[in-house]
Design a binder for these strands. Structure first.
Lengths: 141, 141
DNA sequence: CTAGACCCTTGATCAAAGTCTAGAGTCAAG
DNA sequence: CTTGACTCTAGACTTTGATCAAGGGTCTAG
């Protein structure tokens, strides 16, 4: 097996995972990263799994999950002792959350698209459907 | 002439527009609402246009605009000649952003769904594809 | 040994979009 | 006139997700 050197410093991990050092310590405080081993000096000592986890967090974040949701997602792997069934249920809940998020975005998207299609892109603001839809009728202030 | 009595209090406006009083004052500070007339006592005095504008803000917010973007939209809507085009462009940019987000969510949704489908929901945790994906994840970046 | 790079903790600060508080003045009803 | 609801200002606080600063200890190369 490879990788038997669990002695990455926080700076190295930060660089490889593409996040700031402060962010790593912040995630640790927030319970998204486990507390790492420490050297005698007190320096945090990581191995590759920390980098993997940080990348996982970053991707999930890019997808619009909050850190709290990500913590739940990560907690799935800690649920081992509670059995595969609980894990599957929680994953299904995540899926439902994602579906709801997609549905909400789709609703917004369609409202916007209709407005854009109806807008000539020039002329009198009074005629712009985007502005009119937002303003509702009878402004004339 | 149904000459409207322009003497709505902030509380009435808040109730009709469906926002909090503090939010109205906050929007005023932030330049999203014009400063209203004042009574001799100092009380803010609104008319219906304030309600319309608050609804405009709320709709734009629902469409994913930030308050800063909304401030821009409100300013643009006053510009007869350039306003409409810029409004349409910004709306189109919002639409593109939303599309990208939907695409990302759809992608992760399908990955998650496949994991769930492949998971028996019982048995050895080592065999659970969900746990395995979370544990290892990320082959390369 | 010493300089410079790195790491430690604690606590402050930021941005967004409000929300809430304190202390004081005002308005409408009874 | 008094009571209670309403409004005023200024400024502090909230949440999320970090980022920075101060004041120190550690590590490594020359």
């Amino acid at each position: 097996m490879n990788s038997q050197s669990p002695s990455l410093t926080i700076g190295t991990v930060a660089k490889r995972a593409g996040v700031a050092i402060d962010t790593i310590r912040f995630y640790e405080r927030e319970g998204l990263l486990p507390e790492p081993l420490r050297r005698a000096s007190g320096y945090r000592s990581y191995d590759d799994s920390a980098i993997n986890r940080l990348r996982f967090i970053r991707r999930a974040k890019d997808l619009g999950f909050t850190l709290e949701e990500i913590r739940d997602l990560l907690a799935l792997s800690v649920d081992r002792h509670r059995g595969v069934k609980a894990v599957k249920q929680r994953a299904a809940q995540r899926l439902a959350d994602i579906d709801a998020r997609i549905a909400e975005l789709t609703r917004i998207r369609q409202g916007l698209e209709q407005l854009i299609e109806a807008c000539p892109g020039r002329g009198d603001p009074e005629q712009c459907p985007i502005l009119r839809a937002l303003a509702d009728e009878e402004p004339q202030a």
